[in-house]
């Protein structure tokens, strides 16, 4: 019986409670000492598994020789930041940084602007074709790279957008926008409709209501959407590999690969670059990670 009544109740409380989820931990049935010991043990093992590969990468990035990853015990004696200095001064790191920033910030700005209007439209208005449109947004997310790669390549080269930042930004928007629209729809849904109505009564046009009332209220949602676009653009590999040709325009995802092919065995530089890239991105991630998930599942469970 309970199986049929519960599911409707469960997701209900979840979305608005995004920022402060109810910390209702059941107080009865306190576990035995052994029980919590086992819990701790499992969690420690899991944490170790989660932490180790990254910690290892950081550790290796301190070793000065290219084969140090095979003899990690030797690194202890000669830890140095030379790899970082080398990467920052001798490679195209700064070029990659610039192009990664251009591409990902471009994607963020364009993606969020476009997704916000869409999210608002699907949140507030029921127009003919509404369901089909939502379905289209979902389906777009499952397009495999392979199907679009070739035609996109052709189109971009016809538009002379191969090896240009704008081309890559547009391509990333196609992946970021549908998801951000879902996410923002979920967020707009939590803003009371009375606010729209009040705005309309006071003589604002629908666009005015959207721009002046709803957008400022939706700032947290916009931040999450923006962050998602940013992360997508930073982490994408396939399109960037094919569409960016000159090595000063590589994004980090492509630039890192060039360490493997060009300098083949210079893994210590690769590790250093990887760490340099990972630190800011991960720091950002931690700031919004919680909202990201709520937005994700909320966007997925409502339609």
């Amino acid at each position: 019986m309970s199986t049929t009544t519960l599911p409707t109740a469960a997701p209900v409380d979840q979305a608005p409670a995004a920022a402060t989820p109810p910390r209702k931990v059941r107080g009865r049935g306190q576990r035995s000492r052994a029980g919590s010991l086992v819990s701790h043990l499992i969690l420690i093992v899991a944490s170790f598994a989660a932490l180790f590969p990254i910690a290892w990468l950081v550790f290796l990035s301190l070793g000065p020789d290219k084969d140090d990853y095979l003899h990690p015990e030797r690194i202890f004696g000669k830890m140095t930041f030379d790899n970082y200095t080398f990467v920052l001064t001798e490679t195209n790191f700064s070029d990659w940084l610039v192009s990664t920033l251009i591409v990902s910030l471009g994607t963020t700005v364009i993606g969020v602007l476009v997704a916000a209007t869409t999210g608002y439209a699907v949140s507030r208005m029921r127009f003919p074709g509404y369901r089909k449109f939502m379905w289209l947004l979902l389906v777009t997310q499952m397009f495999p790279v392979a199907v679009l790669m070739v035609p996109m390549y052709e189109i971009l080269s016809e538009l002379r957008l191969i090896d240009s930042y704008l081309g890559l930004i547009l391509v990333y928007c196609t992946t970021a926008v549908p998801y951000c629209a879902w996410l923002l729809k979920g967020y707009f849904d939590t803003i009371p409709f009375e606010i729209d109505e009040a705005g309309r009564v006071d003589g604002l046009s629908p666009f005015g209501t959207f721009a002046r009332l709803i957008l400022p209220l939706a700032r947290p949602g916009l931040a999450v959407a923006g962050f998602y676009s940013f992360i997508t653009a930073v982490g994408e590999v396939a399109f960037a590999t094919v569409f960016m040709l000159s090595d000063t325009k590589y994004t980090f995802a492509v630039g890192l690969q060039s360490f493997v092919s060009e300098h083949d065995a210079q893994r210590q530089y690769m590790a250093a670059t990887a760490v340099l890239v990972a630190i800011p991105v991960s720091a950002f991630f931690y700031l919004v990670q919680k909202n990201l998930v709520t937005g994700l599942t909320a966007g997925g469970t409502k339609g």
Binding site: I54, V237, L256, A278, V281, F285
Partner: peptide, 10 residues
């Protein structure tokens, strides 16, 4: 939190 292309190299 860490981009996939970084962790995969790790």
């Amino acid at each position: 939190a860490v981009p996939t292309f970084v962790t995969v190299f790790g």
